[in-house]
C-alpha cells in the first residue's frame, strides 16, 4: 500500500461476493479447513472461483488460499461457500482426520523431553 492505486486491482471486495460479508451460518470453513476441488474451472466462471479450483487440485488450507488469492479470509470463505454450495469443492477439516489425540501428543512430548 505504499503507492495506493498504482498497482492494486480495481476489484473491490464487495463486488467479488455481491456485497456479502458474512459466510453462511453453516459454513464448514475455518482457517485450516482443507479444500479440494471437485471439478475443473469452466469458462465464464468468476476468476476467483477458477483460481480456487486451480489451487485446490491438491488439498489446500483456506488460509493458504486466502494468501494466494490475496483476499481476506472472510471473503475467501464466502467464495468457498459458493463453490461448496455448487458442489465444486469439498471441505475436510484436518482436526478430525489428521490430528491425533492431544493427550497422546503430550505424552510423546513428555517422553521426548525425558530422553
Amino acid at each position: 500500500m505504499s503507492r495506493p492505486g498504482r498497482d492494486d486491482s480495481p476489484d473491490r471486495l464487495y463486488t467479488l461476493t455481491g456485497g456479502r460479508a458474512h459466510a453462511t451460518p453453516d459454513s464448514p470453513f475455518d482457517l485450516v479447513t482443507l479444500v479440494v476441488a471437485e471439478c475443473d474451472p469452466t469458462t465464464g466462471m468468476q476468476s476467483e472461483h477458477a483460481a480456487i479450483l486451480r489451487l485446490t487440485r491438491l488439498p489446500t488450507a483456506v488460509v493458504e488460499l486466502a494468501a494466494e488469492l490475496k483476499l481476506p479470509v472472510s471473503i475467501t470463505k464466502i467464495l468457498l461457500g459458493d463453490l461448496l454450495a455448487a458442489g465444486r469443492v469439498s471441505a475436510r477439516h484436518p482436526r478430525k482426520a489428521a490430528v491425533p489425540d492431544p493427550d497422546v501428543l503430550e505424552q510423546v512430548l513428555v517422553g521426548l523431553r525425558n530422553l
Binding site: 498497482d7 492494486d8 486491482s9 476489484d11 476468476s47 476467483e48 477458477a50 483460481a51 486451480r54 489451487l55 487440485r57 491438491l58 494466494e68 488469492l69 490475496k70 483476499l71
Partner: peptide, 10 residues
C-alpha cells in the same frame, strides 16, 4: 493475471 489470482503451478 489479475491480482489476487495466481495461475502458477503448485
Amino acid at each position: 493475471p489479475p491480482q489476487g489470482v495466481s495461475t502458477l503451478p503448485q
